[in-house]
Each structure stands twice: as structure tokens, then as C-alpha cells.
Design a binder for these strands. Structure first.
Lengths: 232, 232
DNA sequence: TTCTTTTCGAGAGCGGCGCTCTCGTTCGAC
DNA sequence: GTCGAACGAGAGCGCCGCTCTCGAAAAGAA
């Protein structure tokens, strides 16, 4: 394992090149990726691809994982670039980063968050990377609560079983996060996904030309709902 | 035009049957509808389908329009079944109806709100039916504001161009609806879409078993954000 | 160095796809 | 009763994912 053999190295490069070409095809032709077209672009015959990926779905899975990681990294980097206590600034930065990545990589975003491909079941390798964006957002809430800058909403109205579910979810975040606060955060994440999807899938283009302002206003509404203080 | 000829009648029946079979295939096999499979199910050869639909996309468009109308009707009916002044009840009923229809017709929902098919551009026939669910939700806000039961949030922070966009949008609703209120309603609609999509596309199954309670809590949060009064 | 094993790409081929074209048939409109 | 339009069947085109086989080349063992 110390010295990766030449054969292993060239094989890894081959895999990377296949993924790169596939990503290009994804960006230009949309979601229905054609193995044969990728092979053609590489000057290979289609069956040769199967030396590197056992099926088209496996290739798609590899692209999905990399896309999740790219999105997650963009969101985490934006969040990390803010003052830890500027909760609202972190929220907006993370949301804008997610939208920016999605607008820059629409086909990959559609691959991640669009309708699932019929026969395709996302393997377990994807769930970790898939959770990076929401975990980043919820981390802002956790930090805010830990710092005493975020008041938890009253827990009165939340049903017991739901509270237990959310408590389990909060356990994954490390710190202490009240269930009612987590629920508001999830509302924000859910709405963020909806915002980006609506914009990307062409549902608000006609009616709302000022998309940046709309986006910021909408994410600010959710920041209000969560209770993120207006000044860092 | 008075008496539809027999030929026209049997042709219409044929079209309906093709759509019915296609819907069945959509429900069982997912989004990648196969014209040939539909033809097989009808005891026809594939080329015969082209007597009734010029292309697979046209068949999909017909299914999409019908699905939009079915969803819209479900939402409108749920809303209509409530006391006009029970704004919060109407909101919850409409949201639950949308979710119920989506859970009952997941493949059709994916067709409507999933990632757009690469080559496929939604024709103008679809935009009317597509607006029925959000128009129903915004109608609740308009009624509430008209009745004086909904206080508009302060308009101070909203940028001018965005306010103009939203004013145009509000014009489509007939009554008077402040832009800030409409923005909150749109946030609710956006989050509703995200909620349903996350649930349908399997993103919260593991972590949140009590889905009904979660859904109701999340829609209630948005009702709070909008300012819908808690008692009808 | 020689021999064996593994890896790799090419090629043919299978069934399925959307779609087109042609060719008889059938059936309604005149 | 005749004519023309509508119709379904069939063959075929180029595409797809995927499998199998075969020869070349490279890597490891003798």
C-alpha cells in the first residue's frame, strides 16, 4: 500500500477523467447521462467504461457524492468565513452559498435534489455528504443557543412523539438544541431547498425578475422565524 | 360541432385510455415513461400511438396538465370546505390536501415538481394549472387581509424593485394584498413544496418517523410567520 | 529472462427505446 | 356507392445500457 503501483495510479486517473467527462455531459445535456457518449468523448468504446464503473448508476452515484461534497464544502466555507457570533450573517452566507453553487451547477443540483431516478436507490455512501448542508445550518442554531443568543420558542404545542424525533435529530449535532428551535431550523432548510428548486426549475423566472433580492428577503424571513438576532 | 362524430368520440376515448395506461405505468415504473410499453399494454404496436400523440413529450405534457389540475382541485376543494374566516384552518387544510395528493400520486408529483426533463420545456398550457395551488394559498391571505384579520408586516425593509415585483404578483390575485404579506405567503408555499418533496424523495424517512405530526408542525410554523390567527 | 496471470480495450451482439415511413384496411362523409 | 381520411401493423433507423469474447499488453513469479 505504501507505493501505489503505476497501474493503480493510471487507473485512478482514468476514473477521474471519466467522471470529469461525465460531469461535462451532465452540464450540457442534462440529467440523462449516456455512457456511450462519455465513452465516445474519451475515444473509447462503450464497453471499456465498464472496466471502471460496473454500471451507469455507479457512475452517477460517484458524481452525486462528489456533488454533495462540493455543495457541502461551499456552504461550510461560507459559514466558516463569518464571525462565529454573527448568527444572522452566517445564516445568510450559508444560504447564499448553497444558491450560488446550485446556480453554477444546475444539472448537478438537479441530480442531488430533483426527482429520484426510478430504478435508482441512493446508496448509503451518499447520506453522509448529503447531510453536510443542513448540518451546517443547524450548527448555526446550536452555536447561537449555546452562546445564549437564541431563545427557544415555547415547547408547549409540540406533540411528544415529534419532540422525541427531533431530540434524536438534535443529538447528532453535538451541542444542546431545543426541539422547537431545531424544528424552526428545519423549516428554514426546507424553505431554502424550495427556494433554490423553484428558481432553478424555472417557476419564478417570469414573475420575479429581481431574484437576488427575493432570495435574500425570503431567507431573512426564515431567519426571523428562527429568531436569529438582527445584529451580530 | 353539435354532434361529435362517432369517429371523434372513439378517438377521444382512445386518447383517454392511452393516458390512463400511461398514468398506470408512471405509477408503477416511475418517471421514465415508455411509449412502447404503453402500446404493448394496449395491444397495439408502438407506432400506432403516434396517431394520437405526436411525441412522447406531448403525452407527458397531457399527463402533467391533468396532474396539475388534479392537485389544484384537491387543494381548492380542501380550502373551499372550510369556513372562509377560519384562515388558519384553511391554510392547514390546503397544505394537508397538497401533501395527501402527493403521497397518493408520488410519480405524478415527481413529474410536476421534480427535476425538469432535459430536453423538455413545459409548454404554456401548463402554467395556468400549475398556479392553482399557490393561488389558492395566496387567496387565503388575500381574504384574511380583506377581512381585516391579517396585519401586514412593516414594509420598511423590502427593497423597491422587489416590492414592485411582488405588487405585480399581488395584482393577479384580485384583492389588495400588501407585498410583505405576499412574500410571507410565498415563503409558506415554498416551504410546503420543500416539505412534500423531502418526504416524498426519502430525505426524512429515517430520522422523522412521525411524519404527520412533523408536517403539521412545520406548516403551523409558516402560518405563524404569515400571522394567521390561531382561532378562526 | 521466461512464463503465467491479470488487466485492459475493441468488437459483436442482445433487447429496448423514440421515432419515421410505407402499406393495406376500414369506415365515415359526401 | 364511392372516395378519401384515419388507422394499425410492420420494418427499419440510430440510439441506449449491458454482456461476452478475444487478443494485446503489462505486471508479477519462476
Amino acid at each position: 500500500m505504501a507505493a501505489p503501483s503505476i497501474r493503480a495510479r493510471v487507473r485512478a486517473e482514468m476514473i477521474d477523467e471519466i467522471k470529469a467527462v461525465a460531469r461535462r455531459h451532465l452540464a450540457s445535456d442534462g440529467a440523462n447521462l449516456s455512457l456511450r457518449a462519455v465513452a465516445r468523448d474519451m475515444g473509447m468504446v462503450s464497453s471499456a467504461i465498464y472496466r471502471y464503473f460496473p454500471s451507469r448508476d455507479e457512475l452517477l452515484t460517484a458524481l452525486i457524492i462528489e456533488a454533495y461534497d462540493a455543495l457541502g464544502e461551499a456552504v461550510e466555507a461560507a459559514d466558516a468565513g463569518c464571525d462565529r457570533l454573527d448568527l444572522r450573517g452566517r445564516w445568510h452566507a450559508a444560504c447564499r452559498a448553497a444558491r450560488g453553487w446550485a446556480l453554477a451547477h444546475p444539472a448537478e443540483y438537479a441530480l442531488l435534489y430533483g426527482s429520484p431516478v426510478p430504478g435508482y436507490a441512493a446508496p448509503d455512501d451518499t447520506i453522509g455528504p448529503a447531510q453536510r448542508p443542513p448540518l451546517t445550518l443547524m450548527g448555526i442554531l446550536r452555536d447561537g443557543f449555546d452562546a445564549g443568543r437564541l431563545d427557544p420558542p415555547p415547547a408547549a404545542e409540540m406533540a411528544g412523539p415529534l419532540r422525541a424525533d427531533l431530540a434524536d435529530l438534535a443529538g447528532m449535532l453535538g451541542g444542546e438544541l431545543p426541539e422547537t428551535l431545531l424544528a424552526r431550523g428545519m423549516a428554514g432548510w426546507t424553505q431554502l431547498f424550495g427556494l433554490i428548486s423553484f428558481e432553478l426549475f424555472g417557476r419564478i423566472n417570469r414573475t420575479l425578475p429581481h431574484r437576488d433580492a427575493y432570495f435574500d428577503h425570503q431567507t431573512a424571513l426564515m431567519a426571523d422565524l428562527i429568531g436569529l438576532p438582527r445584529t451580530g
